[in-house]
């Protein structure tokens, strides 16, 4: 079952989250790039397109919402998954308005992450057809 590899971007200012996600998702067969800050992620979005972007919501400086906006401008088909410690309703509503694909709140089980990503992947495949 050779799958079309999705390119994943992971942004979180907590190194443990980036490192663990990279490890887990690479084993599951994805290409993963990790970014420890919102600004470095935005820089990369200038010259690289990602299918799925997982980003922390609350970060110093450039936060998840800004990444969501930037990603959607670059590639409206990109699926953005927001990771957050505090799923506030207000933010959630705003994020959905701006086209977020899903929300995940920490701490999260690895299986849940994989599920959300494969859901995003199926969605991407469906839209391509």
């Amino acid at each position: 079952m050779a799958k079309d590899k999705c390119r994943l971007m992971v942004v979180d200012d907590e190194p443990i989250v980036c490192r663990r996600l990279k490890q887990v998702l690479e084993k599951a067969g994805y290409d993963v790039d990790i970014f420890g800050s919102g600004s470095s992620a935005i820089d990369r979005l200038d010259n690289m397109s990602y299918d799925i972007i997982m980003t922390d919501l609350k970060m110093e400086g450039v936060d998840g919402m800004k990444i969501l906006e930037a990603a959607k401008i670059k590639n409206p088909a990109a699926k953005v998954i927001m990771i957050t410690g505090f799923a506030e309703m207000e933010t959630a509503r705003e994020a959905f308005r701006k086209g977020v694909f899903d929300f995940i709140s920490k701490p999260v089980e690895i299986d849940v992450i994989k599920e959300v990503i494969s859901k995003a992947e199926r969605e991407i495949a469906r839209l391509k057809k």
Partner: peptide, 13 residues
């Protein structure tokens, strides 16, 4: 449970 490595957690947790 979190020490089992099955979760992604951070310092806030």
């Amino acid at each position: 449970d979190k020490l089992g490595g099955n979760y992604i957690f951070d310092i806030n947790y």
